[in-house]
């Protein structure tokens, strides 16, 4: 009986694990995903702060031309290793709208750490109008909003290539081997040497793509490090609890013999 009950459990668990396969299916079968080696993978995963800072630089100098990152505020940049003064200085480089003032007018002022990082466009319509009718998605959750987020983003950024003979690429579209359907409205964002890193890290296409992927993963899941840290402790505690309760159960049941 025991074996059968166990089988029943195991098959249920397998069934449950099969469910997420729908996620992978959503990516489409014929796309190329590069499996990156990410510092944030695994139960002891962590964010590489230097990569995050470089990734943020890439976001500012490349992505932010078209993409907003609405759910991030400047104060969040503390996670990247910036101190309060540095964050204040970064924020001050941006202008945000405030108001109305005493005369009822809206006005621009330098951003403060509590402000959200401003979007390049005032609204979606302006964004579309400036991008051939395509809406550049917000990047704050993009790493979680796509199946296999980090691998996908990385592959997408290095996945631009010449279309095969059989594919006709319409005007304003580009061929990408990682994008579902292959035709993407975003022009190739990274060519290599697009930014200058102060720490001398490589500025190859792959290097930059990897840095910005790190940054976007952090942006989507900023609590990941603390989550995994608490998780290791919780699993440790509960494992001991499982063992203790098992022996406690055996002790209590022993007198039924």
């Amino acid at each position: 009986m025991f074996i059968r009950s166990k089988l029943c459990l195991v098959s249920l668990v397998i069934g449950m694990l099969c469910a997420p396969s729908q996620l992978i299916a959503a990516g489409g079968a014929d796309v190329n995903l590069e499996k990156g080696k990410w510092s944030f993978s695994g139960p002891f995963g962590f964010f590489d702060k230097a990569a995050l800072q470089r990734g943020f630089q890439v976001y500012r100098e490349v992505c932010a031309g078209c993409h907003g990152i609405d759910y991030l505020a400047f104060r969040n940049l503390g996670d990247l290793g910036y101190n309060a003064a540095e964050i204040k200085a970064i924020a001050a480089e941006y202008e945000v709208m405030d108001g109305p003032d005493d005369d009822g007018e809206m006005f621009m002022r330098p951003a403060r750490p509590a402000d959200q990082i401003p979007n390049p466009y005032r609204n979606d319509n302006e964004a579309r109008a400036n991008n051939n009718g395509a809406l550049p998605p917000d990047l704050s959750l993009i790493a979680k909003a796509r199946a296999n987020g980090p691998d996908y983003l990385y592959s997408l950024m290095i996945g631009y290539e010449d279309a095969p003979e059989t594919t006709e690429v319409p005007d304003g579209m580009y061929y990408n081997n990682a994008y579902p359907g292959h035709l993407i409205a975003m022009p190739q964002p990274i060519y290599g040497d697009d930014v200058e890193y102060s720490d001398g890290a490589p500025t190859t296409t792959a290097g930059i793509a990897s840095d910005v992927t790190n940054f976007l993963m952090w942006a989507a899941e900023p609590k990941m490090e603390v989550r995994k840290r608490i998780g290791v402790a919780a699993v440790f505690f509960l494992s001991i609890f499982v063992i203790m309760s098992y022996f406690a159960k055996r002790r209590v049941w022993a007198d039924l013999h």
Partner: peptide, 12 residues
Amino acid sequence: RDFIVVATYAMA
């Protein structure tokens, strides 16, 4: 035996 049972409940 008491100890393991009590400890389990305490841990809970």
